[in-house]
């Protein structure tokens, strides 16, 4: 046989054997005892490491889950992207009861599109909401509205939120959104809220965060909530889901039954819904603009 081949095989074999011995010794010597359940639970999690649970990555949550199990219950720990299905499987494996949470989705609470809130100023700088926010109120002059530079889009790990070029507002893709909350933290104006998906995906929300008095808010944006309170009155008496505070209406998702009665009464069309509301009675419809269902 060719000596070159022999030597190669022998030398490489020796090197490999030496390396194997070192690896074996090191692995034994530096072995860290770890709860094997952590690995198992990590496997069950989606593995996106999105941080939506509040822990650094899926392993962080797995550790927390195992620790919580030893204390008795999961204490509200939840993997938002994994959802109930994942949590149920983990609960079964760890032998603890898991409370079921309803499906949720991110919702953008601003209706200040380019048409409704036209630019009165021009921002010239890096495409970062956080930077523009430190500079001024915004191109439309609304100090509460969307700056349209897409910090939420950058923050999303699931490709679930996109800028609509026409309106200049972000739109959430319901199918892809796992309500991890990354966009909620990223938005310097706190415009995004995680709300229940709603029965059959029906949900209603006030697409405005402007707490200015009506006149001021209207000056910046035609779709602003002016705090008139018509929606509060329109909400069925038994439900009482809408509250008005600081010139701003808020629909409590826990109470709202998504009847849609508040939508047509809003004079500015600040209330948005995922469904087409029932045809308003002619009287109330006078000032109402039809909200866009997304």
């Amino acid at each position: 046989m060719n000596p070159v081949i022999v030597y190669s095989v022998v030398v490489l074999g020796l090197v490999a054997a030496g390396a194997a011995v070192i690896l074996f010794v090191v692995a034994k010597k530096f072995k860290v005892d770890e709860d094997p359940r952590i690995d198992e639970v990590t496997e069950m999690l989606p593995g996106a490491n999105c941080g939506g649970c509040g822990y650094p990555g899926c392993r962080g949550l797995a550790e927390a889950l195992v620790r919580a199990t030893d204390k008795g219950d999961l204490g509200g720990l939840m993997c938002p992207p994994g959802g109930n299905e994942t949590m149920a499987r983990i609960g079964e494996y760890l032998g603890v009861a898991v409370e079921e949470a309803g499906p949720t989705v991110a919702v953008v609470r601003c209706g200040g599109s380019r048409a409704k809130a036209p630019a009165k100023l021009e921002y010239d700088g890096p495409e970062r909401c956080s930077i523009a926010h430190s500079l001024f109120a915004g191109e439309s002059g609304c100090a509460y509205g969307c700056l349209g530079l897409g910090d939420c889009v950058t923050a999303c790990d699931f490709d679930a939120i996109h800028m609509n070029r026409e309106t200049g507002l972000p739109e959430v893709d319901e199918e892809k959104c796992v309500s991890c909350g990354a966009c909620v933290t990223a938005c310097p104006r706190n415009l995004i809220e995680i709300r229940p998906l709603g029965r059959n995906g029906r949900r209603v929300w006030v697409a405005c965060m402007n707490r200015e008095p009506g006149g001021v808010a209207r000056k910046a944006c035609k779709a602003a909530c002016i705090g008139c309170g018509l929606c509060v009155k329109a909400c069925p008496e038994k439900i009482q889901a809408i509250t008005l505070e600081n010139n701003l209406a808020y629909i409590d998702p826990a109470k709202c039954i998504a009847c849609g009665l508040c939508i047509p009464v809003c004079p500015t069309g600040a209330i948005q819904a995922t469904f087409e509301p029932v045809k308003p009675k002619p009287k109330a419809a006078a000032a109402a603009t039809a909200p866009s269902g997304s």
Partner: peptide, 8 residues
């Protein structure tokens, strides 16, 4: 006209 705003 719309004024331009940017940081220094």
């Amino acid at each position: 006209r719309n004024l331009v705003l940017s940081l220094s």
